[in-house]
Simulated assay, not measured.
Amino acid sequence: MTEKLADPSTDRETLLVELVDESGVAIGACSVADAHRPPGTLHRAFSVLLFDSHGQVLLQQRAAVKTRFPLQWANTCCGHPLPGQSVVEAAAIRLGEEFGMTADLAEVGVFTYLAGDDTTGRVEYEYDHVLIGVVEDGPPRPDPAEIAHWAWIAPQQVRDDLVGNPGKYTPWLTQVLEIADQAHRR
């Protein structure tokens, strides 16, 4: 199964990702599909978390067709910059593709994680840049090929549910939420 954009001629699994070492230095490139085959290859990624004027965060339930962690709840959007592409630029593009939204995004931290998806057999091994933004415009316009459901939720409510229902969420959400919420409260 491959993850498709609205344009059926673009297969996201064939796009290139930037391979990195443990400190985030670029060391090469490979396809999205190759980077996510077991045991996983460390590559650059980004995770965006948007806040509203009340301090709530925008979460999405990933679409059933996602090749990694389908139907689990995650941060607003995530993805991979192309080799050499600015993380902020790539994140802004992906935010528009997934939610039909724009926001001034700021990078607020980075972490590395390794997680296998028992459902699809794929692996996430990512050097993940966390970006935040605040939105005050109209409601999101999600692409149903990308997002099954979405919700604005208070960060503490997400933390509480992560404790009681960890399998409902992507494995990277806890770290993204902590980095993003700490930066947002500064």
Rank of each mutant, 00 (worst) to 15 (best):
Lys4Thr: 04
Leu5Gln: 12
Ala6Cys: 00
Thr10Phe: 09
Thr14Arg: 13
Leu16Lys: 09
Asp21Cys: 09
Asp21Arg: 05
Val25Gly: 10
Val25Arg: 14
Gly28Asn: 11
Ala29Cys: 11
Ser31Trp: 03
Val32Gln: 01
Ala35Val: 10
Pro38Ala: 15
Leu42Trp: 06
Gly55Phe: 08
Gln56Leu: 08
Gln56Lys: 14
Gln56His: 13
Gln61Pro: 07
Gln61Met: 15
Ala63Leu: 09
Ala63His: 10
Val65Ile: 12
Lys66Arg: 14
Arg68His: 07
Pro70Glu: 06
Ala74Ser: 10
Ala74His: 02
Thr76Gly: 03
Cys77Trp: 02
Gly79Cys: 12
His80Asp: 07
Leu82Ser: 11
Pro83Arg: 04
Ala91Gly: 05
Phe99Glu: 05
Gly100Trp: 04
Ala106Asn: 09
Ala106Phe: 04
Val108Pro: 09
Arg122Ala: 13
Tyr127Glu: 03
Val130Pro: 02
Gly133Glu: 11
Val134Gln: 10
Glu136Lys: 14
Asp137Phe: 08
Asp137Val: 05
Gly138Trp: 02
Pro139Trp: 05
Pro139Arg: 12
Pro140Glu: 03
Pro144Phe: 03
Glu146Trp: 12
His149Ile: 01
Gln157Val: 06
Val158His: 04
Asn165Gln: 15
Lys168His: 09
Pro171Ile: 04
Leu173Arg: 08
Gln182Lys: 15
His184Leu: 11
Arg186Gln: 13
